[in-house]
Simulated scan of single mutants.
Amino acid sequence: MKDYNYSRLAKYYDILENVESIESFNPVLLKILRKHNVKSILDMTCGTGVQAGFLHKKGLKVKASDYNAQMIKIARSKFKKVDFRKGDIRTSKYGKFDAVISIFNAIGHLSRKDFEKAIRNIGKNLNDKGLYIFDIFCYDYMKKNFIKHEFIDFAKEVNDTKFVRFNNNKMDKKKKILTMNQKIYVQKGLDKPMIFKESWDLQIYSSKELKRILEKNGSQVVEFLDMSGKKYKPNSSLILTIARKK
């Protein structure tokens, strides 16, 4: 699988991924955690720390890790009281927690084989009956609503710098793989723009397939939700899964 080069664009990540939109999910996540009486959290794909920092401020015991060292560096600069580590969701072990999270479609970057490996490793980081909470692109939605032409999905000016992102993506319905092809322009003032070209693969899943994979690897589905916290319906692009360690 081709993967995204987070190191090249780490310093622009919060802008390009619209951190305000990511932050808007935090109250939904907190409500779920409180519903299940979660006190300790391990974020295993923390990125720049958007969820980990928020949950720490809300009084939860938080530890966080990410595969990319540059993302961890930024997270540490933003949230100095959170314990951030460089780690791998497939292999890293940090202790026992009430819940493990991997948000913002992070597991889509894993092959199906590595996703199963990650689920088993997550179980080793969970207390008995602990929760694993993650979101992923929904295959049933994507096969009906996939955009086949090139399009602009992001344009923003921050201070004196403009950001524009083009997408020209491909979808293999048989293999359930979404290939993301992006061209990103970053221009300060009227300087010559920097151009970043990225191409990477994302796995996409149906709720039925997620249920089967989780049960095969030691977890069971508690519920499927959309990103607003409501019961999942096939017209949602992302499936928010709450699973429990058996």
Rank of each mutant, 00 (worst) to 15 (best):
N125H: 14
A99T: 08
S219Q: 14
I15C: 01
I136D: 01
L214Y: 10
A52I: 14
A64Y: 12
N37S: 10
V221C: 15
F84A: 06
N127K: 12
G218Q: 13
N159W: 08
G108W: 06
I184Q: 03
D88G: 07
Y94N: 04
H36N: 12
G59H: 13
F224I: 08
A118S: 14
K31G: 06
Y139R: 00
D114W: 01
K176N: 04
L131P: 06
L238D: 13
S111A: 02
S92I: 07
S21M: 07
A155C: 10
K39D: 12
A118T: 05
V100D: 09
A155T: 12
S92A: 09
N235G: 04
S65Y: 13
K143S: 02
P193T: 11
K183C: 02
E150V: 05
N18M: 08
I136F: 04
L16I: 10
K176E: 08
Y13Q: 06
D160A: 13
R8P: 00
T91P: 06
I184M: 04
K63G: 12
R85Q: 14
Y67H: 14
I204D: 00
S77R: 08
L131C: 06
K174H: 10
L225C: 06
M142K: 00
I177E: 02
K86W: 02
I119R: 01
L60A: 09
K183A: 03
S206F: 04
L190M: 03
S77V: 09
G59D: 14
I15K: 00
L30R: 08
D114V: 03
K175W: 07
F196T: 01
I107R: 00
S102P: 03
I213V: 05
R85H: 13
N105T: 09
Q70I: 05
T91C: 07
S40A: 04
I239V: 10
H56L: 14
R34S: 10
N18H: 08
I195H: 02
I22L: 10
L202A: 06
E223P: 03
